[in-house]
Design a protein around this nucleic acid. Structure first.
Lengths: 253, 253
DNA sequence: GAGTGGTCTAGACCACAGC
DNA sequence: CTGTGGTCTAGACCACTCA
């Protein structure tokens, strides 16, 4: 028990407001903080339940409840016999988080992505604002076109802060199917979360050409900001897909 | 303890497969069944935790875990000091379950719905199929147009099985803002759940006129089937909204 | 076999609602 | 005051993983 981290006793009273907070919420925040600061990154094994119980001086049942909640929230996952891990997020397949590709027979969908543009330079003001960087910051731009059954179905544009992902613009840097895995593993940038906004629009001319549809056809548009630790944005992305190829199904209650 | 329902002991072994199932899942199913059969309907107070614990012969902690899960799933809600209740679902505002109206200042959005069509008769084959009734079944058709800031923004078409909602087509039957409350309270039809599919389309001519947009403008389309107990469908509805007025935001992990 | 999470128990004390 | 859910404890035993 000489571990300096040991017995970091959590007291249920908040310093400022005198407000009481359940112990299990304190435990949740403890874990969340470790994730947000990068002390824990996606894929990491966290401390076992008995250890957390001792370290934070709460009962194991309370730790279980806290971890249960975080699992419900999708932040952690458990593996019986192995331990509890920080969720690794599959951010790829963008639109497919919202839409299931309309293959009714449940066949495997073959998605192929082709990188069609790739360069280093300055980006438009709007993008810089979204990335929260100065207007003259060097950025990496990528355009990728997604094919489903040999038919161009969606276009991804993404902007990165060049200093964080050196050489990403170069041909030699292979962009794998699991794009974010490259970012996490090669560039050591943990991807924590993303914010996405979905809308529908009429198709502009250049996109219409690339997607092989008429101008003004309906397209679904997904805007994404991708975050690393400390709420820093590392990527801004727009995905435009043929509306006739996507539908989103959900059950309420 | 002479209550015949008492000590309905749940055993953790499934009859057919010899498969073991956690006790708390059995408790969850017990509650879910009561909802699906109509024994419990939305708004009902369920048995207290100690009662369930005794009746099903499991510990109170196990009951708590089961109810916790159902609360996470949105099927129940708790009220400290009062009890645990079956969720009452607000199915109204259709598209707004997906999209927040794009008022960036966070102002209250004034939505007004006007009933523009209302009659009793046969419906198209496709609708009958969706409702799972014979083709010549009497249906009630309703069309309502939603205005936001005095601008027509979305159109709802809904089809009901007439025998279940007598007089719904008549002028005298007032359609309140909380439409489903009428169904639940007046017609005594519990609304259990709904399945929705979202897509984007190009606007057809008649809808374009009503929404005051150009033909082929992008619109978001929400198809819904509404279920009562025993998986019976009571309503089929389509909502079409101006895409420029809707956007869907979400955070991932 | 040691360590992990998964399930389950049998209580305790508290805060809140309603009579 | 009683009954409710909310929190928390301190164990037990099991199934799974890995060395």
């Amino acid at each position: 028990m000489n571990n300096p981290i040991s017995t970091t006793k959590i007291d249920p009273y908040n310093g400022d407001a005198g407000q009481v907070q359940p112990l299990y919420q304190k435990v949740e925040e403890h874990i969340k903080n470790q994730i947000n600061t990068g002390e824990l990154t996606p894929g990491d094994l966290i401390l076992s339940e008995p250890r957390l119980s001792k370290q934070l001086d709460v009962s194991i049942g309370t730790v279980k409840k806290a971890l249960d909640n975080l699992v419900w929230q999708g932040l952690l996952y458990r593996h019986q016999g192995k331990g509890t891990f920080v969720s690794r997020i599959d951010f790829n397949n963008s639109l497919f988080r919202f839409f299931s590709y309309a293959d009714e027979k449940g066949h495997d969908v073959r998605i192929r992505k082709f990188t069609t543009e790739r360069w280093l330079g300055k980006g438009p003001k709007k993008i810089c604002q979204l990335l929260k960087v100065e207007n003259d910051t060097e950025l990496v731009y990528l355009e990728r076109i997604g094919h489903i059954n040999h038919q161009p179905t969606f276009i991804e544009n993404s902007w990165w802060v060049a200093s964080m992902v050196p050489d990403l613009e170069k041909e030699e840097t292979h962009i794998p199917d699991l794009f974010y895995a490259l970012i996490v593993d090669h560039y050591q940038i943990p991807i924590i979360r993303a914010e996405e906004t979905l809308t529908a629009e009429a198709c502009d001319e250049s996109t219409a050409e690339k997607l092989n549809v008429k101008k003004d056809s309906p397209i679904v548009v997904l805007n994404r900001s991708t975050f690393t630790i400390a709420d820093k944005i590392v990527e801004v992305r727009t995905t435009k897909g043929r509306a006739d190829q996507f539908s989103y199904k959900r059950e309420i209650r």
